[in-house]
């Protein structure tokens, strides 16, 4: 059952302060990188809703990230509409609709078959965008004008400004976290966590498991869409790699590395993996070897991920003073 522990609260406050203050002191390269990290953090949290809380291991989650990014491009390049008040909800809706269709077909399967079918759907979409000249093919599409928040012709918030985009992303990340934390306390949130722990018993108690799974899948798809919107806006570029299985695998590694079923672990996973990749990629051509070694080490020595290690460490500290109480098996 999800509950915000004291140690996770401390980590969250530190993360919030760090991300919140950084643009005031940091350089512009890292402002761009942190924007990416926060977008990936939203993306990873949305996958954590599936993997860590619903028990749905989706290996095609980048599909929703990608279709949202292509929706941004469609508005900006094809329709020449820049109003983010229009683009953002549309991108979320397209991602959510895709999740509804893919989810409806996928949740009938379980275990390894669910992994395979979500992967297959994402690869289908990947192939679609890759083959279509309209969508820029393998090269993707670049654009110059970024979406901006505007009412009528008055621009409230220009997202081509790095700091503006940074703080919009920051607000979305905080909002996504609060939304998920509230969701997981609600009857729906409790029910999906029940599905993860014991699906058969949930059914025997009268729950419609498919409805619960599908709803969770759609919510996760929409949130991935929010992340896709930011990433497309940040890079002013989209190509089929947005929906590739590398992208799906990458975000899954972030969730596992950070610690499944903790939400803030996904943020830490996105932070750790992206920062590490950014630092070592310039040092050595074969940096992915180091990356792989790092992931293997974390999985072996921190089986519950970074957040799991933080939790157990803080438990050990708290237990240091009062005598331990014996509990039966």
């Amino acid at each position: 059952m999800y509950a915000i522990s004291r140690s996770s609260l401390i980590v969250l406050i530190l993360l919030g302060l760090g991300f919140g203050i950084y643009p005031l002191v940091g350089d512009s390269y890292y402002i761009r990188l942190l924007t990416k990290i926060m977008a990936l953090g939203i993306f990873a949290m949305s996958l954590d809703l599936l993997i860590g809380f619903t028990g749905l291991i989706s290996l095609g989650h980048a599909a929703f990230f990608g279709v949202s990014a292509y929706t941004v491009v469609w508005f900006v390049v094809k329709m020449e509409i820049l109003n983010a008040f229009l683009i953002f909800p549309a991108a979320l809706a397209v991602a959510g609709l895709c999740a509804l269709v893919i989810g409806w077909l996928s949740i009938r399967t379980a275990g390894i078959y669910f992994i395979m079918i979500t992967l297959a759907f994402a690869q289908m979409l990947h192939a679609f965008f890759k083959d279509q000249h309209y969508w820029g093919g393998t090269d993707g599409i670049n654009f110059n004008d970024k979406p901006m928040l505007m009412v009528g012709d008055t621009v409230l918030f220009d997202l081509s400004n790095k700091i503006n985009l940074y703080y919009l992303t920051f607000s979305l990340m905080v909002a996504a976290f609060i939304f998920l934390a509230v969701l997981l306390r609600s009857p729906f949130g409790r029910a999906i966590q029940g599905v993860k722990v014991n699906e058969g018993r949930m059914r025997a108690m009268g729950y419609n498991i498919n409805h619960l799974k599908l709803m969770s899948f759609v919510i996760a798809g929409c949130l991935a869409g929010a992340a896709g919107f930011i990433e497309a806006t940040r890079t002013s570029f989209v190509n089929p790699e947005y929906l590739s299985w590398h992208a799906s695998g990458n975000v899954m590694v972030m969730v596992i590395l950070g610690g499944m079923g903790s939400l803030y672990g996904s943020l830490l996973g996105a932070l750790a993996l992206t920062l590490l990749g950014d630092n070592i990629s310039s040092l050595w051509d074969h940096w992915l070897l180091i990356m792989g070694g790092f992931v293997i080490a974390v999985v072996m020595f921190m089986p519950d991920g970074i957040s799991g290690s933080i939790e157990s460490l803080s438990r050990r500290f708290r237990k240091a003073s009062p005598p331990r109480e014996e509990t039966g098996p």
Binding site: R185, S186, A191, G194, G206
Partner: peptide
């Protein structure tokens, strides 16, 4: 509580705390 919750009308309640 999870067992009892299955008797709630409408399965999608997202915001109020389950407790």
């Amino acid at each position: 509580r999870l067992a009892a919750q299955s008797r709630m009308k409408g399965s999608f309640r997202f915001f109020r705390s389950a407790r």
